[in-house]
């Protein structure tokens, strides 16, 4: 697949040409759930460890998580910008952009230098991402999400599109589920992506176990607060409802949630609490 047509007229900062090997886009919502963020981080990390180049759009949310995941695994990643290659948007990701360059990745743009963020440019950028990769993986996307544009562009170029399923209650998985219904491949872990690329499956850990390579500290389910069973990883649970369902005093419910938050098992999100997926997600709620 190394003979994919390179696009003309790209401006690049960092290493160019792109390293040989497979390229996968990991894209999705700008305001993902902690679940989506964790999936993107872990998936990108696993792929990067296998030598796959992870591309994304440097946007908030899934894009940022994908870049971070690849970098955390010591890998190399490339960001395709919707602005000039010398303009970092959002500005809060300027540190991330530097990190990408420092680890041998690159920033790519089809727009002239100093192009500021403009609404119309981002869908065009999404098409460029599709052009640069072998496969597009959509992690979380609501209806009308820009990630679906990337997926569509990939399909029109005859490239496979994969999607990560989510909760049927989660509006941020509606787009992914639509892709799956339309025939996209289902991604549960890096194995599924590698299989699509035609790679060697044996190199990966058992998908049902958290990858040891990430080295995240984990506790066994035993001895954990049964309250966790009532929490979702993508839909915030309201404290009052939890207390009512568990028939616990409200004060105790809040205290137990704080304890779990301190242990890194839950996180405040969307006005309630969500369970943090095992082996993923960042412990801090701060962006």
């Amino acid at each position: 697949m190394s003979s994919l047509p390179e696009l003309e007229g790209l401006r690049v900062r960092g290493r160019w040409p792109l390293p040989p090997g497979h390229r996968v886009a990991v894209v999705g919502a700008r305001r993902p759930t902690p679940y989506g963020e964790a999936v993107a981080e872990r998936l990108a990390g696993d792929l990067a460890q296998l030598g796959v180049l992870v591309l994304s759009g440097l946007a908030l949310g899934i894009d940022g998580a994908a870049h971070r995941g690849a970098l955390a695994a010591g890998g190399c990643t490339a960001a395709v910008l919707g602005t000039g290659v010398d303009v970092i948007y959002p500005r809060s990701h300027s540190g991330l952009a530097e990190q990408i360059l420092a680890q041998g990745g690159c920033l790519i743009s089809q727009f002239p230098d100093r192009t500021p963020p403009q609404r119309a440019n981002f869908p065009r950028r999404n098409g460029t991402i599709a052009g640069l990769v072998d496969i597009v993986v959509v992690v979380e996307a609501g209806l009308g999400s820009g990630a679906l544009i990337t997926a569509e562009a990939a399909l029109s170029l005859g490239k496979p599109v994969l999607a990560v399923p989510g909760s049927v209650f989660s509006p941020l998985s509606v787009g992914c589920h639509q892709l799956l219904r339309d025939g996209a491949g289902l991604v549960q872990n890096a194995r599924d992506v590698v299989a699509e690329l035609g790679g060697d499956l044996a190199v990966l850990d058992d998908p049902l176990q958290p990858p040891a390579s990430l080295g995240l500290e984990r506790q066994s389910e035993l001895g954990r607060d049964p309250l966790l069973a009532y929490l979702s990883d993508s839909l915030p649970a309201e404290v009052g409802h939890l207390a009512a369902r568990l028939q616990l005093p409200l004060s105790e419910t809040i205290a137990r949630l704080s304890r779990l938050e301190l242990e890194g098992a839950v996180r405040r999100w969307g006005g309630g609490y969500v369970r943090l997926p095992r082996g993923g997600g960042r412990p801090s709620a701060r962006r």
Binding site: S251, I254, A255, L257, L262, R268, A285
Partner: peptide
């Protein structure tokens, strides 16, 4: 400690 834990619950997600 229960009082401390409950107290820590009275903050907002992102604004904290």
């Amino acid at each position: 400690s229960g009082h401390i834990l409950e107290a820590l619950g009275y903050r907002l997600d992102e604004l904290a």
